[in-house]
């Protein structure tokens, strides 16, 4: 008999749990934020401080990737859709159309820059590269003497005798990553050779020279430490935090430093954004307050605490304009 009683208790508990769940689905007190894993570390820093210093509960932040986040964000209006989508690129026109079709008006907030760095171990050689050289090292097909051929280079010194005489070995993000998208756009497209079709510029070689190292940038950092000739591609904040073991490659004559990225001289840098749902302003508490906390002087100003986490701030004028946009809830424009 002992068994059957325990059994009944379990069964009752499970039924209870089920019914409790379906009842409590409507109201939501805390902000729900989804999106880019690049913006994620900054978003959670702000979210945590926002929860500590304001009267609002701490927002929930998820790293779903820029595309996945905007898809959830544009799915509709209501408590079971997110209030904010982080993105490491601008919202696409197609996404804006989806948003509009579902009655969602996104308000764009530009928060700063992120540099993509090529770095190697301090025990390895110094790299001074141009974007053209990076393209020649990584493109699947290149033009040699007027003909399109599979990439023949296997050593840096074959591209330019001035480069180190080391085998080309690059660890980088997989195609699903926003960092990869930005790298392709800022390097592979920009430095594409003449004679290669626009679409084919983005093709990165698959003969083992470029290694997909997964979304985890820490893994790349650790692999670089154990392989001094390998070069890694990742976000600036990881170079910043691991300055004791890694050295960033100079690209087009500009070193990957905080100052150079902020000044716009370092060529591989992109803007970071988040989008807030205009329709939720007033219904979900703290939405505009969060956006203002994110763009405030002490967060993303020149000496703000986000700088310590690796975010490169916007110029002061631009930041003021963004704050104005938040206050006016200016809808995002097509580009």
């Amino acid at each position: 008999m002992k068994i059957s009683k325990t059994f009944m208790v379990f069964a009752l508990a499970s039924i209870g749990a089920l019914s409790a769940g379906t009842g409590a689905a409507q109201a939501r007190e805390q902000l729900q934020i989804v999106g880019s894993s690049t913006v994620f570390p900054f978003a959670i820093t702000v979210a945590e401080r926002f929860g500590q210093t304001s009267s609002f509960p701490t927002p929930i932040v998820e790293a779903t990737g820029s595309g996945g986040g905007l898809k959830l964000f544009c799915a509709g209006v209501g408590a079971n859709t997110p209030d904010i989508a982080n993105a490491s690129r601008r919202i696409k026109n197609s996404e804006l159309e989806t948003c509009a079709a579902n009655g969602v008006t996104p308000v764009e907030v530009r928060i700063g820059f992120d540099g993509i760095v090529l770095a190697n171990s301090k025990s390895g050689p110094d790299f001074t590269l141009s974007r053209e050289q990076i393209f020649l090292a990584l493109a699947r097909n290149i033009v040699v003497e007027g003909a399109l051929v599979p990439n023949p280079f296997s050593r840096w010194s074959e591209i330019d005798p001035a480069l180190p005489d080391e085998a080309i070995e690059v660890l980088g993000p997989p195609p699903t990553s926003g960092t990869r998208d930005a790298f392709v756009e800022l390097v592979m497209h920009q430095a594409c050779q003449e004679g290669i079709e626009e679409d084919l510029c983005a093709d990165i070689r698959e003969d083992g020279v470029y290694v997909d190292a997964g979304e985890n940038d820490n893994l790349i950092v650790q692999k670089l430490a154990s392989n001094s000739a390998a070069v890694g591609i990742f976000g600036f904040s990881f170079l910043d935090q691991n300055a004791d073991t890694l050295r960033g490659a100079t690209v087009d004559g500009s070193e990957p430093t905080f100052e150079n990225i902020a000044a716009g001289t370092y060529p591989i840098a992109r803007s970071l954004y988040f989008y807030l749902k205009k329709e939720h302003v007033g219904t979900i508490p703290g939405l505009v307050e969060y956006a203002l906390a994110f763009t405030a002087e002490r967060a993303s100003g020149e000496d703000g605490y986000l700088g310590e986490k690796g975010l490169i701030p916007l110029p002061e004028k631009e930041r003021q304009r963004v704050i104005e946009d938040i206050n006016n809830l200016t809808p995002a424009q097509m580009n």
């Binding site: 769940g21 959670i44 509960p57 929930i60």
Partner: peptide
């Protein structure tokens, strides 16, 4: 289902994040 998230507050019930 959104449980891979940054949640600061300690959940107090089955429906808290």
């Amino acid at each position: 289902i959104g449980m891979v998230a940054f949640v600061v507050d300690i959940p107090g019930g089955f429906t808290d994040p």
